[in-house]
């Protein structure tokens, strides 16, 4: 188990012990900070949250609620904390982008049509679909972030906007995959496409088994 995961587990365990109102206050703050950006240092954020939670637990013992301890304006506190987050490192940003890109490409390859000559990759979709997906993810996280402390009573707008983004993204992906194919394809000939698919299947299986083993060890510990 990584240090970050251990801290997050500790936060979850301690949050469950809070009174319902304090639990709601703290989980909202946690979600607000976590959705401030894709690339902030998760370990540092969790350290900050755990520290605040431990102080809150002590305040609880003196009869103070989360609202009394942290104040009536968690959003402003959250904004001020976000301002102090260190700028994300380029390495972390590239790492996450690569992961999203990799996942998208795996699905692109798996869903590409197989012809007599091999696997036919749609190049336009191969380039544009990951960009679309990453933009959609960033937008949805942004909506989630702003919906935690809504400024008005229209609580339905995040659902509507998220629904619209998902619908538009899926529609564009379908259009890119099915319409823009002529002259923009790349053929992976036999047997390379079979080798590529086999390598992906082995990679996914090893990853899945590794994750299961990790969870099993964590439960045993």
């Amino acid at each position: 188990m990584t240090k970050t995961q251990a801290t997050l587990d500790e936060i979850n365990r301690l949050t469950e012990q809070l009174a319902p109102a304090d639990q709601a206050y703290f989980t909202d703050l946690q979600l607000y900070l976590s959705t401030a950006g894709l690339f902030y240092d998760e370990a540092q954020l969790n350290d900050q949250l755990l520290n605040m939670l431990l102080d809150l637990r002590e305040a609880n013992q003196h009869g103070q609620s989360a609202r009394a301890f942290f104040g009536n304006d968690p959003q402003t506190m959250g904004n001020h904390l976000i301002q102090q987050f260190p700028q994300p490192k380029l390495r972390d940003q590239l790492g996450l982008f690569s992961l999203l890109l990799g996942i998208s490409w795996v699905f692109q390859i798996l869903s590409s049509p197989q012809t007599a000559g091999g696997l036919s990759l749609n190049l336009v979709a191969f380039i544009l679909v990951p960009i679309l997906e990453i933009c959609a993810i960033i937008l949805i996280i942004r909506i989630l972030h702003t919906s935690i402390y809504p400024n008005n009573h229209h609580q339905w707008w995040p659902y509507l906007l998220t629904g619209l983004i998902v619908t538009i993204t899926i529609s564009l992906i379908v259009i890119l995959n099915s319409w823009v194919t002529v002259g923009w394809t790349f053929l992976i000939p036999d047997p390379w496409h079979t080798i590529l698919l086999a390598a992906m299947a082995i990679g996914a299986t090893v990853y899945l088994l590794g994750a299961l083993l990790h969870r099993w060890r964590h439960h045993q510990a």
């Binding site: 900050q48 605040m52 301890f69 942290f70 402003t76 506190m77 001020h80 904390l81 301002q83 102090q84």
Partner: peptide, 14 residues
């Protein structure tokens, strides 16, 4: 309140 203290600590640390 914590809303004042924690951002200040984060600022001093940063």
């Amino acid at each position: 309140v914590g809303g004042t203290l924690y951002p200040l600590l984060a600022k001093l640390e940063k």
